[in-house]
Computed example of a mutant assay.
Amino acid sequence: MAEKRQHRRFKKRYTVRFGTTDLSMSGVTGDISKGGAFILTRDVIPLDTRVHLQVQLDSTNFVLFEGIVQRHRKVPPELRQVDPGGFGVRFLYPGEVVADIVNKDTTTFEMHYTTVDQLRAAYERELRMGGAFISTDKPLRIQDKVLLSLCLDFAGATVEQEATVVHITLPQGTTRAGVSVMFTDKKALEASLKPHLELESLPEK
Rank of each mutant, 00 (worst) to 15 (best):
V63Y: 00
R5V: 10
K34W: 10
G178H: 07
L193Y: 12
D83L: 03
L40G: 04
A177G: 12
A121I: 13
L150M: 09
F87Y: 13
M129C: 07
R120V: 11
D185G: 11
S33D: 06
K187C: 08
L148R: 06
F62P: 00
V166T: 13
L152R: 13
P84I: 07
A122C: 03
V16T: 01
K187V: 12
V55A: 02
G88S: 01
H7S: 06
E126M: 08
Q81M: 06
G27T: 00
K104G: 09
F109P: 09
S59R: 14
T169I: 09
A37R: 02
A2E: 11
F91G: 05
T175I: 13
S33R: 07
V89R: 02
L92P: 03
H167L: 08
E204K: 15
D48I: 06
D48Q: 15
D100G: 15
V82P: 01
G67E: 03
Y113A: 14
P76N: 03
I39S: 00
R13M: 11
D83N: 07
S26W: 01
V82Y: 05
V165N: 07
R5D: 08
H196Y: 15
F87W: 04
G36E: 11
E78W: 08
A132R: 04
G156D: 14
T136Q: 13
L148K: 03
G173F: 09
V69Y: 01
M129Y: 14
I32W: 00
L147C: 08
A155G: 07
F38N: 00
S135R: 12
K34T: 14
L170P: 05
F91N: 08
L193F: 05
Y113K: 10
V179D: 06
D137H: 13
V75L: 02
S26Y: 04
V89M: 09
V82I: 13
R73F: 15
H167N: 15
H167V: 06
T184I: 11
D58V: 03
L202D: 14
F65C: 04
V16P: 03
S26A: 15
I142C: 12
A37E: 01
L64Q: 05
D105M: 12
V179E: 03
G156T: 13
M111Y: 04
D185Q: 13
E198K: 15
G67N: 07
P84Q: 10
A155R: 13
G27I: 00
R13F: 12
N61Q: 02
Y123E: 09
I134W: 09
Q56R: 12
H72D: 11
V28G: 00
A177N: 06
R120Q: 10
G178L: 06
M25P: 00
G36A: 05
D153I: 11
K194R: 12
K186D: 10
L202Y: 14
H167A: 13
P195D: 07
L64N: 02
R176W: 02
G27M: 00
T107A: 08
R13W: 10
F109R: 07
F183K: 11
L147W: 05
P94D: 13
L119W: 03
T114A: 09
L40R: 08
G131Q: 10
R176F: 07
A155D: 03
D31F: 01
P84T: 12
P203A: 11
F109Q: 04
G156M: 12
K138E: 13
A163M: 05
L147A: 03
G178N: 10
A122Y: 03
I101E: 11
R176A: 15
F154L: 06
T164P: 07
I68H: 02
T114K: 11
L92A: 08
G30C: 05
N61W: 05
R128M: 15
R42V: 05
